[in-house]
Design a protein around this nucleic acid. Structure first.
Lengths: 170, 170
DNA sequence: TGACATTATGTCGTTATCGACATATACTAT
DNA sequence: ATAGTATATGTCGATAACGACATAATGTCA
């Protein structure tokens, strides 16, 4: 099977979050928080929206003569939901994106996502601590690879902070 | 000017870190910590190494009949150093990569990188706090965009933790 | 009212990158 | 012996993604 694309689901999620969005508005959205996890230029957005419309994921509203607004169809909503339910991987950005697409605090997917991510982060945390022990066995190794040492200790602290935050939200 | 490529400098930095590396070893390196910031498949690594050799960035040692090892040339060392000195941007991965390529604790570039990153992170921290105030003005907005709210508060906590770590290392 | 920025949508050529395919040797467990 | 895995290097086709180019309407400031 081909590698799973992310962009179409991001567009679907963004439109779904705001009910209706134009291609231009989507390109502006990437300047905000969501831009920290994903980005696309307008030259990629417009053709993708056209493809999504052709496939029935979205419908467009051209009644406004300034912009073409897109709305998620029932089929698109189903596709987005299925994507949201697919298991996370050790890549943090997928978690962030999916969390961003949760609109309602009471959505059962919210707790599910946090629980999933917590398992993954704890595994990574343990792995990184193991790496620190095996790679930096003595002070000489630290001294001669100081950047690597800093990156590794930073990664551990990052995971610790992230785990704490996730547990707090559960 | 064309967009700045990262991969060649990553390869240069990886080889420089370990003195000598084969293409295969580089592909294995991406399974470790550096893989959290950058990745390349072997089908990209081998042609890139060939190009770097042709351009005099690295020289190869084929004395071992199992692997071809690459060593950074004086010119390559200069190119890597110049890249390391280029100013950082709000993209955290560049900081992580360059930090990873610092071998010696006393390298003056170390403090410079951390100082640069600190400025950028503090700006981002302020910006995110401002966003929180302007986007989530009342409880209804939080309730109806709960994922976005969580992502934003997480981003703020992430920056806070990062800034603390950077200040601790200074 | 002219200049310039912003909104808004689209196409096109280039390239960075990946997965698949290919090949050969060396190691390893049965 | 031999099947399977790891090491090791390479090519090739497909495509995701970007920057450049193009166009037009609207908004804005002097």
């Amino acid at each position: 099977m081909p590698k799973k694309r992310i962009l179409p689901y991001v567009l679907l999620g963004l439109i779904n979050n705001k009910e209706r969005l134009s291609g231009y508005q989507i390109s502006q959205e990437f300047k905000n928080e969501v831009g920290d996890f994903w980005h696309a230029s307008h030259s990629q957005i417009y053709p993708e929206l056209a493809r999504m419309k052709a496939d029935g994921w979205v419908s467009d509203d051209e009644s406004d003569n300034k912009s073409t607004y897109y709305i998620v169809t029932d089929q698109g909503s189903e596709i987005l939901r299925n994507w949201m339910r697919e298991p996370l991987d050790d890549n943090e950005e997928l978690f962030s994106l999916k969390l961003y697409f949760i609109k309602d605090k009471s959505d059962p997917l919210l707790k599910d996502l946090i629980t999933q991510e917590l398992v993954l982060r704890k595994l990574k945390y343990q792995y990184l601590q193991e790496r620190l022990k095996t790679v930096f066995t003595d002070d000489k190794k630290i001294k001669n690879n100081f950047g690597h040492y800093l990156i590794l200790t930073r990664a551990i602290e990052r995971e610790r902070n992230h785990i704490q935050w996730l547990e707090d939200k559960l």
